[in-house]
Design a binder for these strands. Structure first.
Lengths: 169, 169
DNA sequence: CAATATTGTTTTGCTATCAAAGTAATATTG
DNA sequence: CAATATTACTTTGATAGCAAAACAATATTG
């Protein structure tokens, strides 16, 4: 039964990823900027200090190679500026241009309005539960490689516990 | 606070998507097949009857154009066969080759073992809760365009309800 | 039955992603 | 201080994904 659940998780994830992609494509059509590009601008705007390319990549969870391409496009549109670091000239500091700030101010939400609306209507406890669930998934995926061994002794049993006391929520 | 939660959802989703991408890249390295390709093979294997390209695309939640490229690669590796439909020659029927079936039998799981292991160790109620949360997200994203109007009257209030009775779980 | 519409797939042009290799600048060490 | 290692970024070559246009075959209709 557990294997089945995992498969269902995968399917749900694929549907979500698909939806996010669709929205990104739609944004590209209407705004001329993709989700990744807007997210990049937003992260720059929120930063307390100018970010280097590598720092930025880490914050938005992308490899540097991927970010380079995104910056290329943002720079081509003059929304972002690349400057070599003064102290360390290997670094490339990224700053928002005024145009970038402007575009960002007008940018639509990064998740479909469908979702944003529906989600915002949920009672708070439910929002929290959903958020905590996907954060859980994210953690489990990024989890450190298993502490080796110990794999046979505590093999996954098909536990059928009862829910925890309410305090756990 | 709600807007904030939405942003956190987005961030968690991006981390998950990133992890899935990384795993797909790893699969490509080790097995020579990406997640999308394996998932395609699996869907073919599970089907009760030969699928047309369009039918397949729908089942794996992709556009036809995207699927065409995936099929190109699978066909190049002789894992899959394209045949024109006999009754309706517009259709392209996809069938697994023996090699395809073989490869599929040896294929590793489509989500990182980290995740699969961690998830399978969770108590059942927790697995269900997580699954239901992401299915919820998927639904909200695919939800039909809003029934128009009514947008000001039932604007999203920042409700602070208490959790529901346990029966709701 | 010929013109038009619909349906099914592929093609094209773009963005996003990754890994790995390449380049340039800084840091370390013998 | 010169050789080597490390760090920061870009380039390259794949795959995946979309929309829109092209193409090909079937269905409909006047």
């Amino acid at each position: 039964m557990t294997a089945n659940q995992t498969r269902e998780v995968l399917i749900a994830l694929r549907r979500i990823i698909h939806a996010v992609d669709l929205h990104s494509a739609a944004l590209t059509q209407t705004v001329g900027l993709s989700t990744a590009q807007i997210f990049t601008l937003q992260t720059l705007a929120d930063a307390e200090h100018p970010l280097s390319a590598g720092e930025l990549a880490m914050r938005i969870d992308l490899t540097q190679g991927t970010l380079t391409a995104i910056l290329d496009r943002l720079e081509r549109k003059s929304l972002v500026l690349r400057t070599r670091g003064q102290d360390d000239r290997r670094k490339v500091l990224i700053t928002l241009t005024d145009a970038g700030r402007q575009v960002l101010a007008d940018a639509p939400p990064l998740l479909q309005q469908n979702f944003t609306r529906a989600f915002s209507r949920l009672p708070n406890w439910e929002q929290s539960q959903i958020l905590s669930s996907i954060q859980r998934i994210a953690e489990m995926m990024h989890a450190p490689p298993p502490p080796e061994a110990a794999s046979l002794l505590d093999a996954p049993r098909d536990r059928t516990d009862t829910p925890p006391p309410l305090e756990a929520l």
